[in-house]
Design a protein around this nucleic acid. Structure first.
Lengths: 344, 344
DNA sequence: TTGAAAGCGCTAACAC
DNA sequence: GTGTTAGCGCTTTCAA
């Protein structure tokens, strides 16, 4: 574990010590052919002995490839994003890529800053769960031909782009079918921001499926929160307060934290789930399996979203040909537990 | 959003277009002094117009600074590590550093690979939650003067090193004090690998505090798992199977997933928590607040571990002087819920 | 206040 | 098989 001060730190040092040229040493470092076996061994031995570590920064400068993918998310602690990152990493690590993280804390401004930073860093591609409503920076990146894959939320862009996400409209349609299948007709819904495509499509699926089934929706049963727990709680409180005028037997809450908030509001009001009110959640994660009651929930195949994203990235990074953009829509699924019951 | 093909992509382009030298342009890009105000404005305008994006790769090659911190963890999806990453990122992002992730999947071999990869990438520093028992690679990094901060688990190294973690021995002493305070005397314990310092110190604190209190420990009540849920389940099954010979009223489970496994084994055997057996967990995270019963648990101040790690990193990265290594031991705490009851 | 030039460590023609 | 050399885009003396 000796330290060889300033020797053995670069190709030139190794080359000099061996009386070889840098290109020959470079060839063996990169496993190229056209090197005499004997020479190769000598070089390898020197590399080992002097603990030579190739400099990827120099290599990147020369080759214009950093083997780095920037992943920008609103909040890395949210299970959805953590799983997504894991899925992407699983796939791209096999090809030698690494993820560099940008956690925006839901701030469009920070998102733009990360976009700038990662451009300067020359990441090979970007994965973006955008929270921005003015995607100018994004647009310029795409125009400048850096591969960008969108996940979760889509940008309001007129040009085409790559994306991997679930069919949010379908998710809500499934929610309606599930609840109406349990004979519910008066269904409340708590949404996140409808300014984002995610929220917009979840509302769309809900409304359209309800009307297809000929069920009138009481607009007083549609509430908007901000994805956070407190807003789920508040929305639920409002719903409960006006329950005599606007009755409902089930509530569909379209995000994980809002679902927890809603559950607590119900419990707080001395009501029981599912006996008094059925709750259908979204993105609920119960790692412990010890929540009571277990919450029936729409789920996204997060790890697959990550894996598909990773695969799409690899494809965009290797295909020389200008492939046309694609939107990969995965299917959500319902994880049935105990929070919804059949009306008699 | 025009695309300026091969113009405006580097300092030289900008310099040429303006009839200036690269050094002058470089000065304004870096906000240096000694540039005439008029020149500065002209350059800034050109940068804007031609959408010039500085190349950090080239800058890094020149300055030997990548503004990148490698964070290597066994499993990014574990709440502990996710929170850790968030804490680190919060601090270092303010100084322009970014995190590049290495998820080893608990494999010492992958850990070594990431150590190699991140060395080649020339990360400025490393954060390492090691799973390796032969830290040769780590040692050579430290010797080569790249700052390394250890978290969670410590390496078996004879030289000194920086680390931020909780006092695991203290955690177990607190566990013993809490349970004995509830009049428990026969306390079972389920541990992870004792080969790792984390597990070793948790056992140490338990044993030493028990004997200080004059309570004999039945060694049959000490079980070893592998941190995963299944092993918690299996250990608990064993404990329950021999309960008539080796009775116990409480069990202290030293990891999150093993705690869930143990809970399920107890429920599976038709027993209740805490009426029949008290369960004291470790690292249990209940984001929903809807687990029933709520599990009383030892907790680590994860985000602080992350923040302290970030601060230590920044210090090591800015202090020219060779500072002596430090081990920052944070205090664990008990989050009391309903899974432990007082014996009568 | 500005410019010329060296060089960070590497890859890849191209020549021998 | 191996060596020479020209950059990749930038920072930074040093000189003007």
């Amino acid at each position: 574990m000796e330290k060889h001060s300033n020797k053995g730190n670069n190709l030139k040092d190794i080359a000099n010590m061996l009386g070889l040229s840098v290109s020959t040493v470079s060839r063996v470092v990169n496993g190229r052919r056209y090197v005499k076996e004997e020479t190769r061994e000598k070089v390898l031995a020197a590399i080992e002995k002097y603990n030579y570590v190739p400099n990827d920064v120099a290599r990147s400068l020369k080759t214009s490839v950093t083997k780095t993918i920037g992943v920008i998310v609103p909040e890395i602690r949210e299970t959805f994003f953590t799983q997504l990152i894991k899925g992407i990493d699983d796939v791209i690590a096999k090809s030698g890529y690494s993820i560099i993280i940008g956690d925006t804390g839901e701030s469009p401004q920070r998102e733009d800053e990360y976009l700038d930073l990662f451009s300067r860093r020359r990441v090979d591609a970007l994965v973006l769960a955008t929270v921005s409503s003015e995607p100018n920076k994004i647009l310029s990146l795409i125009v400048n031909e850096i591969p960008v894959v969108f996940v979760d939320n889509l940008p309001r862009l007129s040009i085409s782009f790559d994306a991997v996400l679930i069919d949010n409209e379908l998710a809500s349609r499934m929610a309606v079918d599930y609840l109406t299948g349990l004979s519910h007709r008066n269904i409340a819904i708590i949404l996140g921001s409808k300014a984002e495509t995610t929220g917009y499509n979840r509302l769309l699926g809900f409304s359209s499926r309800m009307s297809e089934l000929g069920i009138a929706t009481d607009t007083a049963l549609i509430k908007y929160g901000d994805y956070k727990e407190a807003s789920g709680f508040a929305c639920m409180e409002e719903l409960l307060a006006s329950r005599d005028v606007h009755p409902f037997s089930a509530v569909y809450v379209t995000s994980e934290l809002m679902t927890y908030g809603a559950m607590k509001a119900i419990i707080n009001n001395g009501l029981r789930v599912p006996d008094d009110i059925s709750v259908l959640g979204f993105d609920v994660h119960d790692r412990s399996g010890l929540m009571r009651p277990g919450i029936t929930t729409l789920r996204q195949p997060e790890e697959y979203i990550g894996r598909y994203t990773g695969e799409l990235l690899i494809k965009r990074l290797s295909d020389a040909e200008e492939a046309s953009k694609q939107k990969i829509l995965l299917e959500p699924y319902i994880d049935i537990k105990e929070s919804c019951k059949k009306l008699d």
